[in-house]
Design a binder for these strands. Structure first.
Length: 130
RNA sequence: AAGGCAAAUCGGUCUAUCGCUGUCUCGAAUUUUCGGGAGAGAGGAAAGUCCGGGCAGUAUAGAGCACCGUACUUCCUAACGGGAAGGCUCCAAUAUAAUUGGAGACAGAAAGUGCCACAGAAAGGAAAACUACUCAAACUAGCGCAAGCUUCGUUUGAGAAAAGGUGAAAAGGUGAGGUAAGAGCUCACCGUAUCAAUGGCGACAUUGAUUGCAAGGUAAACCUUACGGACUGAAAGACCAUGUAUACCGAGGCUUGAGGGCUGCUCGCCCGAUCUCGGAGGGUAGGUCGCUUGAUCCCAAUCGUGAGGUUGGGGCUAGAUAAAUGAUAGGCAAUUUGAUGUUAAAUCAGAUAACAGAACCCGGCUUAUAGAUUUGCCUUUUUA
RNA sequence: GGUCUCGUGGCCGAGCGGUUAGGCACCGGUCUGCAAAACCGUCUACUCCGGUUCGAAUCCGGACGAGACCU
């Protein structure tokens, strides 16, 4: 498997985002909140994701950009955890991720937190199935 | 050498691995994807949106009024509320001649209107008379603790606008003459106004003359004068794809003109009939162009006091769209702390690195900014 | 990205060049056995920096903050 994380992984479809929020499936794990739903469209990628840093906590544009870039890097490093699970179960996910901490955390910490979050997400999904 | 002020320039860099977004190219593949390679990828303010322009649409946007903006002069520029050079006024220092530095929304108050609280007689009309002053007339006791004064006192009339008091501001200033007391009433100097001459493209300066000085402040109050300004902004606008409703309700109209044409009014012009406007409702919300070759950047020569102009040569330097520049490891350079060493240099270890992210593009202004470099001036110390 | 509006005590809110009204709240007092209500009194403000003016919350320029609209 490769570590590439390109434009295809972006969730841009407005209707799909509406669906993600109306489905009310969410996982909370500091410093993240995740909303997710099953993907409706036909895509050759196991999941699509939107990353968001709220303007309330980060007022400067370059701070928000920085947060989103670091999160994207953290997901790219750890996406295999989620991807292998999804391929095994033949599911496709739309994910909306919100960063809730009020300060920028270091990359090492974020990587650990990201692993926790993804494992938690996998557990939630498999519970849904049952 | 250190510190301060001013101006200008810069705003970390290199290597490796894994990634992101365009461009070019090769191969697979065939109308769209996959893989390989090459090369590119945030700023001096990208910010605020305070001005100006390009560009696009509205008629290749026309006239008048209204409205808005600008305001010493000359120049630069595509243009500007920006910049350059100069003038004037004010402030500071040296010093009392001038020089240096800084600041200035710096047209008109003698076209008109308004306002100037409180205080004050009076705040603009050549107005007014509280105390005090001067003169004249009348009255007889008056003033003062007293000495004393009668040239006083009281009343009336007149003069003057000098002194006091109010105020931010009281209407040329100082001195002399003059006068009953006074007053630009007269004179000298200064200020100011007008006219003339000379110098300067000009703002203005210098000099001279004058039966001038009767007329405060405020125009970032209305206003006047001169000049300028159409409006809307890339979510502009053009095209393709997808989808729906050539349906419903209301109003108007069919060439004798309804209605529309992107700030208001009047005029003018243009479009205009299976139509136009409004309502309610349905559908789509994807892509391409616009989009980066431009008042462009770099170097050289040359013209100009300067902003800047001209000529020649070379370069192509981000184009994203829920919005690309990141992560990890190491080195170099900078600052700083500690240790070794100590005149200094050097070595080792650790820490820090600002303000901040393109969104059609330029020219400015303003605001934020760790630190570094250069130049000029000033102060202090050391050496020669 | 673009266009516009606003900023006055803890809160709401008047003021259009001349000592910043008023209400609610807080605090103190009167009343009460105690409290509420009522009455009386006090305290606390013009977002910031410059300019114009004798004088600025008001006029002008800049900064900061908040809000609305255009798809």
């Amino acid at each position: 498997m490769d570590k590439r994380f390109g434009k295809k992984y972006k969730l841009c479809n407005e209707k799909q985002i509406e669906l993600v929020f109306t489905s009310k499936n969410s996982v909370k794990s500091y410093p993240f909140v995740i909303h997710y739903a099953d993907l409706q469209t036909q895509i050759d990628v196991p999941f699509q994701i939107t990353i968001s840093a709220p303007k309330r906590n980060f007022k400067k544009a370059h701070e928000r950009n920085r947060i989103k870039r670091i999160l994207r890097e953290a997901i790219r490093e750890n996406k295999l955890i989620l991807e292998t699970f999804l391929i095994e179960n033949e599911r496709k996910l739309a994910v909306f991720m919100i960063y809730t901490a009020k300060e920028e955390l270091s990359f090492d910490v974020l990587q650990k937190k990201m692993k926790n979050l993804l494992n938690q997400l996998i557990i939630e999904i498999s519970n849904d199935k049952k």
